[in-house]
Amino acid sequence: MSLAHATRSELTKQFSTSIWWILALVLAAYLGVTAAGLAFAIAASDTGMLGRATQGLPTGADAASMLYSLASAVGYVFPLLIGTLLVTGEFRHKTLTPTFLATPRRGRVIWAKLIAGAIFGLLYAVLALVVTVGPAAGILVGFGLDTGLDSTDTWAMLARILLAFVLWAIIGIGVGLAVRNQVAAVVIVLAFTQFIEPLLRFAGAFVEALTDVARYLPGAASDTLVGSSIFTAAMSGTAGGGLEWWGGALVLLGYGVALTLIGYIAGWRRDVT
């Protein structure tokens, strides 16, 4: 089976399940409510509706950039999960044997999954931008504030969010290859992204010995790639400093390549049981 046919097969398998659109719905609801709520708080503070400006909240172009970057700063876990499920679903539902029978070259199967993961990453990125930029820009306009959408810097940032989602999906595939058990892989993803990394990044903002470690964590690299984040804004930008946006992209890609190679060497070449 050619790579194109193998990729089409991977997409068909994923679209035939409900998990992809369930994740999409959760993403849309989560990001939409978060962006709208935070945009209202920032706009109300900036215009004096709250009586006085609330310290710590960005204003002007910085506010718009931070609001739009919520798509990646908060939503990156969704392409990470779908990438993981693209692989672990094969082991859980025992569909890997027919997959290998149809495409005996196992490396080609991985490439097909990487391409399919990138497509899902783009799909989720577009959805994330729609439900984030739409409500946030609408609220900013309603309060008479600058949306930043007339700036090329803003559109460049939105393009980098698309890239970030693709890279997160690739990392997810690497996680799925390295951790074949679906439940274990999902638990690891959620535990690391929601608890372990945020704590390390928070510590890195105050403990000099952990600053370099925090800078190269995947979430910090993603924020560096995008160029704006609610987390780095809260931490005064220290957690991801020192890297250019392309450096953040290379760090994320490095995680994806390393995990994929580990999974391929450690388990993908084994006999399927």
Rank of each mutant, 00 (worst) to 15 (best):
T7G: 08
S9H: 12
S9K: 07
Q14H: 10
L25E: 03
L27D: 03
L27C: 13
A36C: 11
L38G: 03
A41M: 13
T47S: 00
T47D: 00
M49K: 08
L50T: 10
R52S: 15
P58N: 10
S69H: 02
S69D: 07
L70H: 02
A73L: 09
V74Q: 13
P79K: 04
P79H: 09
T84K: 05
T84Q: 08
F91H: 07
R92N: 14
R92M: 14
R92G: 14
K94E: 09
L96Y: 00
P98I: 07
P98S: 07
A102R: 06
R108A: 10
A116P: 04
A116E: 02
F120T: 07
F120G: 03
A128Q: 04
P135F: 05
A136I: 02
G142L: 08
G142Q: 11
L145N: 03
G148E: 01
S151Q: 14
S151F: 10
T154E: 03
M157E: 05
A159H: 09
R160F: 05
R160A: 02
V166F: 11
I171P: 01
I173N: 01
I173Y: 05
A178P: 05
V179Y: 03
A184T: 15
A184C: 14
V187H: 01
L190Q: 07
F195I: 13
L200M: 14
F206I: 07
V207Q: 08
L210M: 15
L217H: 06
G219M: 14
S222G: 13
S222H: 08
D223C: 12
F231N: 00
T232W: 02
T238S: 15
G241Y: 10
L243T: 05
E244M: 14
G247P: 09
V251K: 04
G254Q: 01
Y255P: 05
A258M: 13
L261S: 05
G263K: 04
I265N: 04
I265D: 04
I265C: 07
